[in-house]
């Protein structure tokens, strides 16, 4: 690959250098090859993305502008009616509230925990590789399995957690019944699954930080904690940003965990008071259990916009938090 790129650059760089073509037609082919081959190489992604990413996105937008009953079919163009109805829909705002609540409750400890885990994994530990592999294990477990096991742990009557807190004299908690207890349980599942993943990503970034920075800081008498906050964290900024955005996208699309946590006849409602119904669940409720396909599609687009807004906000926030010291810029 490198060879070709260098050759290409060279060719383009010297257009008026004396050409020595072996045969004109072959030369033209080579030119075409140089021009278009790279596009062919990258095309699989874009073709797949067009089919499974861009098309559904556009199609959803089109559906969201129509009154569409899943079974009854297309009921015609209604403009932005679906959107204005959603903005007045208290169940939608409830879902937004829950989604953000769970997102914050899950993501903040998750990133902090991942940071600390990565810090320790970066140390000279015994059986380091085993630990590094180990933190990723939760991530390769199926979501459904995680959700089912955690729902059992958080069970009201026979749950391990209630049994444990019983020892310190706390009454059994009906976890799905209360809003915050439900959020907490769902956030735990998310963190259990994703903390290790983020820890590994952060670990990779930490290893790329030059050791001499730490050495000179040590010579200057900076404590380990100070080194962590003043060197490690600022230099991790781009990676932290990645982690936060991945967590944002995942967190705002949260679906399986709360659904299975409420596992029952109407789990999609997220509990008796919709305590843990996320936007993705509400989207599904409207689109697929109540057949309001156009309405559901409009929720999907609002969710998409929401994710963009929050990702941008995160971008700014992470820049502020981690980028305070300009000296850390590469």
């Amino acid at each position: 690959m490198t060879a070709q790129i260098t050759r290409g650059r060279h060719d383009r760089g010297s257009p008026d250098a004396a050409p020595q073509p072996p045969a004109p037609s072959r030369h033209r082919l080579t030119k075409i090859d140089l021009k278009f081959s790279p596009y062919i190489f990258i095309s699989p992604f874009f073709i797949i993305f067009a089919i499974f990413g861009a098309f559904p996105l556009a199609y959803t937008l089109w559906v969201s502008l129509r009154k569409w009953d899943l079974l009854g079919g297309d009921g015609g163009f209604v403009g932005l009616d679906n959107y204005s109805a959603i903005l007045k829909d208290s169940w939608f705002w409830n879902a937004v509230y829950n989604t953000f609540g769970i997102f914050l409750l899950a993501t903040i400890p998750q990133i902090l925990l991942a940071l600390v885990t990565a810090y320790w994994l970066n140390k000279k530990l015994r059986a380091r590789t085993a630990f590094r592999m180990g933190v990723l294990v939760p991530n390769v477990t199926s979501v459904a399995a995680v959700a089912i096991v955690f729902s059992q742990l958080f069970g009201r009557d026979f749950g391990l957690i209630n049994w444990l807190i019983g020892f310190v004299g706390i009454d059994p908690i009906d976890w799905p019944a209360g809003r915050y207890s439900a959020w907490f349980a769902v956030a735990t599942m998310v963190d259990w699954r994703w903390t290790g993943y983020h820890a590994l990503i952060l670990l990779a970034a930490m290893q790329a930080i030059p050791k001499d920075l730490y050495e000179s800081a040590s010579i200057d008498g900076a404590s380990a904690l100070r080194q962590f906050w003043q060197i490690t964290v600022p230099l991790l900024r781009p990676t932290l940003l990645f982690s936060v955005i991945i967590a944002t996208i995942g967190g705002l699309q949260l679906f399986t965990e709360p659904l299975l946590f409420n596992g029952s006849n109407n789990a999609i409602l997220g509990g008796s008071l919709r305590q843990s119904q996320t936007v993705a669940m509400y989207l599904y409720e409207q689109g697929f259990t109540r057949f309001n396909f156009g309405y559901g599609a409009a929720i999907a687009w609002l969710l998409f916009l929401l994710i963009i807004i929050v990702s941008l906000a995160n971008l700014v926030l992470v820049r502020r938090l981690a980028g305070g010291s300009k000296g850390a810029e590469q």
Binding site: G155, R156, D157, F158, G263, S264, N265, S272
Partner: peptide
């Protein structure tokens, strides 16, 4: 017994004679 029908806990409730 505060079980919502068709939940796992409801099912367990039968077995545990709740």
């Amino acid at each position: 017994a505060n079980y919502q029908s068709w939940t796992d806990q409801w099912v367990a409730g039968f077995k545990q004679s709740k």
